[in-house]
């Protein structure tokens, strides 16, 4: 339900002239797709760890940067991009 809630916030913000990018996990890709959101980054991560494993700053940062690039570069609505790689346990805490 969280992904739908954030999708709705994205739609409201876009209607009011604020550009948005939503970062969601692959498990909820179909739900985000059907909401026709302007920009979506899909991460190959676990629920509750959308941007990457806790403590894995490199992975989290890569996800944030990919989302921000999408914000800047998407030229048309419903642009959906997959973050490559995989969820890894551990990292540098």
């Amino acid at each position: 339900m969280c992904h739908v809630s954030v999708g709705h916030v994205a739609r409201l913000l876009e209607e009011s002239g604020i550009a948005t990018v939503v970062v969601g996990i692959r498990a909820f890709r179909p739900r985000l797709e059907e909401m026709a959101l302007p920009r979506v980054l899909i991460t190959p991560h676990m629920m509750g760890r959308t941007l990457g494993p806790p403590g894995d700053r490199d992975r989290q940062r890569a996800a944030v940067i990919a989302a921000l690039e999408l914000l800047e570069e998407a030229e048309q609505p419903e642009t959906l991009v997959d973050l490559p790689g995989a969820y890894r346990p551990g990292g540098d805490q």
């Binding site: 999708g7 002239g17 498990a27 179909p30 739900r31 059907e34 909401m35 026709a36 302007p38």
Partner: peptide, 19 residues
């Protein structure tokens, strides 16, 4: 987890705003 949540949700829209 991906397999479990693969279904569509209750909120499908045809197009949407883009700023």
């Amino acid at each position: 987890q991906v397999h479990a949540y693969a279904g569509a949700g209750d909120y499908a829209y045809e197009g949407g705003p883009f700023t």
